[in-house]
Design a protein around this nucleic acid. Structure first.
Lengths: 126, 126
DNA sequence: TGAGTATATGCTGACAAGGGCATATGTCAA
DNA sequence: TTGACATATGCCCTTGTCAGCATATACTCA
């Protein structure tokens, strides 16, 4: 059994950097025709169309025909499952202070030693 | 150019359902040896080891040798980029009220009509 | 109708994932 | 040491990706 299809779920769909880029562009602009995306991404048109196909398949974008062009818009609600899933881990990286993490934190803010990570947080549990 | 490696970044790593499941289990239990994961996932041991290998490669988990077994723990901080990325879209599914979304929203909170989703939000743009 | 523009689809090739299974590596206990 | 246990690695196989290029489809305007 090979890797799951990119159209299998949102998680697989957004694994592609270009597809995330497309979503970013759409979120910013509200709506965009394929041509505009092609220009912005500097990617061959067929490639863009295919990426849009994947995003369409998982419901992340919607299309609207407008004359001879197709205008795409993001359908952010589909990202909700992802948000919910990741949010479950948020408490872990705000509370938890293990060694590995420390290194990263240190690198991030090199001046303040032993900074208290805002303590008013939702209580642990799950 | 084929699909990016699963070890390329966190987004690719978490595209696999089983790997997400592993993370869930680790988050819940704090620490788990491979054997425990094998039992919980009901997956052949080599498969589990390979998934753990991917998670290790992207830094999502850390290992600790403990006698003849290896105890894994989650390193949730690495999920932060994902959280940040998705969070940028949160306002879209709380503000935006297109038809598709409406159905979902309705289902979610069946009582309150035209609820004002907290308006004090970072101004759009980027 | 026909040319031109905008977008989608089909096919190919290179490549890696992921399960299965065998086996290597490492650790403990007697 | 030897043997049992815990985990990692290697190889095969099937399958699906993604870019590239050519082509089909769809719409618009003369």
């Amino acid at each position: 059994m090979p890797r799951a299809a990119t159209t299998a779920d949102v998680f697989n769909a957004i694994a592609e950097p270009r597809r995330r880029e497309i979503l970013d562009l759409l979120a910013r602009a509200g709506e965009l025709a394929v041509g505009a995306l092609v220009e912005a991404l500097r990617l061959p048109q067929p490639a863009v169309s295919k990426h849009l196909g994947v995003l369409r398949a998982v419901g992340l974008v919607s299309v609207k025909r407008e004359g001879q062009r197709r205008v795409y818009a993001i359908n952010a609600a589909e990202l909700r499952p992802v948000h919910q899933w990741v949010s479950n881990y948020e408490r872990l990286w705000t509370h938890q202070v293990d060694s590995i993490q420390r290194r990263a934190e240190r690198r991030a803010r090199m001046g303040s030693p032993t900074k208290k990570p805002n303590p008013q947080r939702k209580e642990v549990r799950s």
